[in-house]
Design a protein around this nucleic acid. Structure first.
Lengths: 115, 115
DNA sequence: ATACTTAGTATGGTTTACCGTACCAAGTAC
DNA sequence: GTACTTGGTACGGTAAACCATACTAAGTAT
């Protein structure tokens, strides 16, 4: 078990284009219905959202609650284990803004240098 | 600029199968030659490693230092901005181990329940 | 009957990520 | 001149991720 084992495990669990986003939303907004989540993720496909949520349910990160109603109502929220991602997600979010600033500054410097 | 902007920026900068791993190694081992890095990432292709390093250099995360020698010698290290990922990477690593334990326990419980 | 609702599933297609293999340059050692 | 070194590049291919579109169930409202 190498030094990178932890990183690899994390990438397997929450890697990909959508999972960190979905988890971040559930963390900050609490319980959300399928359709709410979908509207907050403007470019995701319905199939993709279902698929990512099911994988995260299987991995114990997300809890799925189905109401026996018509039209259907299904809610999603983070499990306790899912909530343990809080720090990771907060850091990712914070560093992202740092990085945006950094790239913006780099760009400004280039504009100065080539007038 | 939505709440998820930071996460999206982070995914663009360090998303994918290899970047977090490479960054983590450079963070913990300091300066590494291309070949050293390659040996520590046992399954990566040479082309992939070059490619990922170049992208991260372009994004200001990694510094590339070329020595004018034959055979070639090229060293990589984190830039200051790259080092600002320290917290993110440490958390990812830590959570990964937490997750491995969690999955192991879940498995054990399943074994109990179906004897 | 018709339309509208929600949370899906199904099918097929495209795009991106990643891989394997081969090749190169330009020196040193034999 | 042959082999070995390192850090690449170039090519073609595969597999995974992701997307668009159409369809469904089963109820309510008109």
């Amino acid at each position: 078990m190498g030094r990178t084992t932890g990183i690899i495990a994390t990438l397997q669990a929450i890697g990909g284009k959508w999972k960190p986003l979905i988890l971040f939303l559930l963390l900050h907004e609490g319980t959300l219905r399928f359709g709410e989540l979908r509207r907050k993720l403007p470019n995701i496909t319905q199939g993709m959202l279902t698929n990512q949520l099911r994988e995260m349910e299987r991995d114990g990160l997300v809890v799925r609650r189905v109401y026996q109603e018509i039209p259907p109502k299904v809610e999603y929220e983070l499990s306790e284990h899912g909530r343990s991602l809080q720090q990771v997600l907060a850091d990712m979010c914070g560093w992202g803004f740092t990085h945006i600033d950094f790239m913006q500054n780099a760009e400004d410097i280039n504009l100065e240098e080539t007038p």
